[in-house]
Design a protein around this nucleic acid. Structure first.
Lengths: 322, 322
DNA sequence: TCCCACAATTGACATTTGTCAGCCGCTCTG
DNA sequence: CAGAGCGGCTGACAAATGTCAATTGTGGGA
């Protein structure tokens, strides 16, 4: 896809302004348009990723806690958001950092998988626009039937839009009523191809879900409260891409999981970079489970959660090193 | 190398301003400093690469000529700078584009090699600052004894400085008086190691030199006019990283080349991405030679030169496809 | 051909940002 | 311990940028 002729002028204005550090009135004179137009073009250029402005995330990666966590958990990268953000509560800072980190990790020509959830959607909405060429964004899990906010396909498409990338959705329900139907659907060529494509990703972005009564999977109607209680009895510890995992981070052997159309954990682990973002304190248990299962290579979280992880870290370390 | 405590405040200001889109007065209030200080910190943040602003180079890569050249010469990327830059002569635009393209090609953790010359030095001086972690910049050729501007080590160090990278210089003369001495020096562990490190680069940046009487190698005192005339008689067609090449892009079998401390062409070709930048029209011949020898994968040049290359392209194509 | 609807562009004004002389506090020195 | 020297910070002003109502251009339908 080439540059649309209408974009040509935007490119030129952006180039003169940003690459040559010309002033807007100089650019206007150069292109024979009004300065107001230049200002408008420049805004468009920023919005469409023709120019990208990014702030270093080292502020968060250089944190002492971050380093300790990297060592303790054997992760490739950890970003700790301090609790002392004066502006607002530290939780809302986590997705901002995550969006920057995510952009740092995406490279032109790569394939990224995104799961769903409030956290992921918030990140998508906060993310700067970029013009990465040849990037493909794939959806890691099926959709939910009900008209629910933060739909998986919305997360995928919004991120794809912001990266100027191609978005590939999975047009299948996240969870079906019988195992048999799920299996049949999974072997449909269209769906199978997409599920197989997950393991070929270079980068994955997801959060973890809780398994308490206020859980995302409950609120979006994927499981009811009785079912969830039963799952907890069986050892459910968290949710990753719609799939229930146990405390060891393994897919819980249960009816619910067998009825899913979603990335399986082996495919997920086949992705080299797996960025997990955790906002709420309530996700401590699920996060531990995901870490134990080696589902995470890069981690963005708040300082308080980081502290808790380190304090309970000794047991985790052995688990991830197995 | 962690963040120096003095940089902490700069990082914070940059983060609040660029990641949160706060206004300078808001940032100032947040950090309890004056707005003037915030403005100063932000300038520093831009200058040190804590925040990076980059404009897309697609404007130049989407040019029709660029596409045709890519196909005709089998190159991975071509950027054509149009002749119609109203601001100034098109030649001075080439290094600006080259600097942006170069920054797009460098990735954190990679190793880049840079040669020397006016063009390379101009690019270095124009290049935006970035904070790429784990990058190493290595010098592709030895130094010249005389106090000459655009010294190879200056090119290397300036680029390293702008990338916040580690610079590795070759502390040896580019050309020695006898073949024997050059050979001895090349087998010195310090030098040998550096020369061997060249092939391990991921990216190289260089230009091509002419072999006429006004050539860089003459002006910097590496060869005298008589010697150069003799070299031309032997078939010299251009200069790459201080080495004389013939019209087929092979290292010219001559006394001068045997006395060099510089990247050999095989090492150079072992580097996956080789960005060649050509400014002056007089470099047409040398560029053809370099292309014939497969020394180039990515190319930045002016529209007029691109046109000439395409017109004479048929012969080149067969040469590079051999 | 005329007219209308819609989008792009502009001029004028409001807001935000860059700059620099002067000031403050600190250290080093005689 | 006074005073010079220095680096960083600030206040006030100048410059640059963002915004929006009004205007101009443009294509399509009657």
């Amino acid at each position: 896809m080439g540059i649309r002729p209408a974009d040509q002028i935007i490119h030129k204005a952006a180039w003169l302004y940003y690459a040559h550090s010309m002033r807007q009135d100089e650019v206007a004179r150069e292109l024979n348009i009004s300065r107001a137009s230049v200002a408008m073009y420049l805004r468009k250029a920023r919005e469409t990723g023709i120019v990208s402005i990014s702030a270093s995330t080292r502020l968060f990666a250089d944190d002492v806690l971050a380093r300790q966590l990297e060592d303790a958990l054997g992760l490739a990268g950890v970003w700790v958001v301090p609790a002392t953000t004066r502006t607002q509560d530290p939780h809302s800072e986590v997705p901002v950092v995550a969006a920057s980190v995510f952009l740092d990790l995406v490279r032109p020509g790569t394939r990224v998988g995104v799961a769903w959830g409030r956290t992921v959607y918030t990140i998508a909405a906060l993310m700067a626009h970029a013009d990465l060429q040849g990037v493909t964004v794939v959806q890691l899990c099926g959709n939910l039937g009900a008209p629910y906010s933060y739909r998986p396909d919305e997360c995928t498409m919004e991120i794809a839009r912001r990266l100027n990338a191609k978005g590939i959705n999975i047009y299948a329900p996240l969870v079906l009523s019988t195992e048999k139907l799920a299996a049949q659907l999974r072997s449909e060529p269209v769906i199978r191809e997409q599920l197989e494509g997950i393991a070929r990703c270079d980068l994955a972005l997801f959060s973890v879900g809780t398994v308490d009564d206020d859980s995302h999977v409950v609120r979006c109607g994927a499981v009811d409260l009785d079912e969830l209680a039963e799952l907890r009895r069986l050892g459910a510890a968290g949710v990753v891409a719609g799939r229930i995992i146990d405390a060891q981070g393994k897919s819980l052997d249960c009816d619910y999981n067998s009825r899913l159309i979603s990335a399986d954990l082996d495919s997920l682990r086949a992705i080299p970079k797996r960025l997990v973002v955790v906002q709420e304190e309530s996700k401590f248990g699920p996060l531990k489970a995901a870490l134990a299962g080696g589902l995470c290579t890069h981690l963005v979280l708040g300082a308080y959660m980081a502290r808790r992880l380190l304090d309970e870290g000794s047991s985790l370390q052995s688990a991830t090193e197995k």
